[in-house]
Design a protein around this nucleic acid. Structure first.
Lengths: 177, 177
DNA sequence: TGGCATTGCGTGACATGTCACCTATGCTTT
DNA sequence: AAAGCATAGGTGACATGTCACGCAATGCCA
């Protein structure tokens, strides 16, 4: 059915994705594109934050207020360091975060939430969580929540093991290792 | 456990996400960030395409070579129209796609793959599929592929029903309606 | 301690994405 | 057919992201 099923184009090593996999992948990609768009839009219009802003604030907030080196932050949210560097500079101008040189290692810049940043994040979280519930969980049958988590976590672990980006600092692979 | 569980911050309508949902959502977000990064990187270095380039080419290719109006393309891949417009202009300069005014409705611009675009896409698909298999499916237990598809499709449907972006042209909601 | 590779980060040039707004066309109603 | 509205899409200014590179601090080892 798909034009990839027969041999009109060269096949990747190990062949194309099989039917079940095609389905899963298409579902993933489609959803991802839309969700990202919707989250961005909602945050922007309700809280004057972009989704990337929100990702940064959340990561810092989860760290519990401890200042976080740029590199660590980058690994947490899966960005390149230079992107973090630029972005943090902009967020600093908006007083959402603060940078200070580390005492231990003077190459390191540590980023932390400002009070204002925390306030903005908490306010934004309201609408954001609301949206996530409405778009994501309201469409997800209860009994699929567990399997979904398992599937995504399992893929995530694999992504870290075999991808190019360094693991987040607090990462420990699943199972005994 | 989470600082949201008790009442130190104002709660969104309907409360925060519950434990199971938190887990699923975190898994989704984390994975999304990394996967996007890795796909971008691989395409860029192996095929001189960005992930957005690839999304556009794929959408056009799936349409089976029929020219596609900007608006339709935008809905397929979940972008704003103006983004598509800019992007298509750039891709035209690289000879990946072609634009021509529609005969029926002269407001409409129809985009289609060039021969070169198709060639590039087919070449890029090799490495891309390979990466998807390696990062995604090699980490996903067989028995979870089905539930994962179901979960994602179900959320996707909800996203279309309740989101702000128009549905893709070929969209029909699941179940009888 | 003097090289020398490594690490952490910033920067500048450029590619990309967003937003507000413009025009041209088409549709509908009178 | 003219008025008024809706729709398709382009555009320009600006925000954001990427890439290649540079500099300074550190680690390592002879």
């Amino acid at each position: 059915m798909s034009r990839n099923a027969n041999g009109s184009a060269p096949a990747p090593e190990g062949g194309w994705l099989d039917g079940e996999q095609q389905r899963a992948w298409l579902a993933y990609i489609r959803l991802q594109l839309r969700l990202t768009y919707e989250m961005n839009r909602q945050l922007q219009s309700d809280s004057d934050l972009s989704l990337p802003d929100y990702d940064v604030l959340t990561a810092l907030s989860v760290a519990g207020g401890d200042p976080m080196p740029i590199t660590v932050l980058a690994a947490q949210i899966g960005w390149e360091r230079s992107r973090v560097s630029h972005h943090v500079r902009r967020m600093t101008q908006r007083e959402l975060v603060r940078c200070s040189p580390s005492a231990n290692d003077r190459r390191v810049t540590e980023v932390s939430l400002t009070r204002h940043g925390r306030t903005v994040l908490e306010a934004a979280a309201l609408g954001h969580v609301e949206l996530v519930r409405r778009l994501f969980f309201d469409g997800l049958p209860r009994e699929l929540v567990g399997p979904l988590s398992q599937a995504l976590e399992s893929v995530y672990a694999n992504t870290i093991a075999r991808g190019t980006l360094p693991p987040p600092v607090d990462w420990h692979p699943p199972g005994g290792e």
